[in-house]
Structures are given as structure tokens and as C-alpha cells.
Design a protein around this nucleic acid. Structure first.
Length: 181
DNA sequence: AGGTCATGCAGCCTA
DNA sequence: AGGCTGCATGACCTG
């Protein structure tokens, strides 16, 4: 299982290489990595077959712990998920593509200083069922035609459909192949 | 400096 | 007592 996880960055250094060349190389690699990370955060698999990237989250200890709630990134949540007026939030139905199990999550926010924190609640069973751990990634896409969403847990190659309107559940099976790497 | 977010934790609830 | 809810705190990041 750990073999599937990202390995640590290769910091091995070419001893024969002049020091300045090595530094330039490392700086370039760092920049490339940084821009790749930035791209991931905004739109890693942009607009595939009508599915628009909404957000991704690398799961933390507190996300996969016993509380069953996942903190979502604020900017993407506010701009790309349904806006929340009441702090009680909204209920979301999600269908597991493999088991056809339908999960009931709750999307809500907490007041935090003068701002908000956005939370996906009742995620404990989902986390446990699929063995998600710190470092695993979930991603949410939106199907704009159906005004619905897709949720993925990357480490386990899970494909979960998530939508506001329960009648629109079958639309993204083709995505599976995109995430087998 | 101000914002974000991972986690701490008080107080309520339930048994 | 122990778990859960709802927010508070503080480390860290960004501009």
C-alpha cells in the first residue's frame, strides 16, 4: 500500500557537476514543481467531457480521524460549491460508483474569526469504507450540464458521484481510466 | 499583517 | 464518563 504512495523527492546530487549548474537545476526543478502544484490546486484535469474541476483536498490527520469531518479549502468552496447562507449547511447525496452505495454528507461552515471554515460532515463511514489516510486526495468535479458534482478519492482510485439533484446519478464512468496511474 | 486551516478544547448531550 | 458539536487557537502561508 505504501508502495503506491508518492516517494520522497530525489535529492541525490551529481558530484561531478559544477556547483552553480547544480543550483540552477535544482531551482528549475523547484519552480517546475511549484507551478505544477499550483496548477493542481486550481485545475488539474480541466473540463473533461463537461466535468469542471471544483476543488481537491489532501487529507490530514484531522480529516481521516474519528470526527468524520473534512475541512475544505475556503476559496474554492466559496466560489465553486453551492453558496451557504445558513450555517446549518446543506445535505449532499453521493453515490459510490463501485458499490452503488449512496452517502449522505453535509456541507456546512463554521464561523472563524471574521471568516468561515468549510466542512464536509458525516464523512467517517466514507473514509473508513475506502481506507483513506493522511496524504490521500479527494477531488470534486462538477457536471455543469446536470448541475451535479463528482467526488474522487485518488489514492484508492475511488469514483464517487455527488449531486444536488438525486435524479442525475449516472454520468461519469469514463473518468475511471483517467485516474489509473 | 492578515488570512487560512489543522487541531485543540469547552461545554452540552447521552447514557 | 465519554462522545460530539461548534467554535477558538495558534502555526503557517501569502502578499
Amino acid at each position: 500500500m505504501d508502495a503506491m504512495r508518492p516517494s520522497a523527492e530525489n535529492s541525490e546530487m551529481d558530484i561531478d557537476e559544477p556547483q552553480f549548474l547544480h543550483r540552477i537545476k535544482m531551482a528549475d526543478a523547484k519552480r517546475a514543481n511549484a507551478s505544477a502544484m499550483a496548477a493542481d490546486r486550481t485545475d488539474p484535469f480541466q473540463n473533461v467531457d463537461g466535468l469542471k474541476f471544483v476543488l481537491q483536498k489532501e487529507l490530514r490527520n484531522s480529516d481521516v480521524g474519528s470526527l468524520g469531518r473534512i475541512v475544505l479549502p475556503k476559496r474554492e468552496a466559496e466560489t465553486r460549491l453551492p453558496s451557504l447562507v445558513a450555517r446549518g449547511g446543506i445535505s449532499l447525496m453521493m453515490e459510490d460508483i463501485h458499490t452503488k452505495q449512496v452517502w449522505a454528507f453535509k456541507y456546512r461552515f463554521w464561523p472563524n474569526n471574521k471568516s468561515r471554515m468549510y466542512i464536509l460532515e458525516n464523512a467517517g463511514d466514507f473514509i473508513k469504507k475506502h481506507g483513506l489516510r493522511p496524504g490521500d486526495i479527494i477531488m470534486i468535479y462538477k457536471n455543469e450540464e446536470k448541475d451535479s458534482f463528482v467526488l474522487l478519492g485518488l489514492q484508492k482510485f475511488l469514483l464517487i458521484s455527488y449531486n444536488i439533484y438525486p435524479e442525475a446519478l449516472n454520468y461519469h464512468i469514463l473518468l475511471i481510466n483517467l485516474f489509473v496511474f
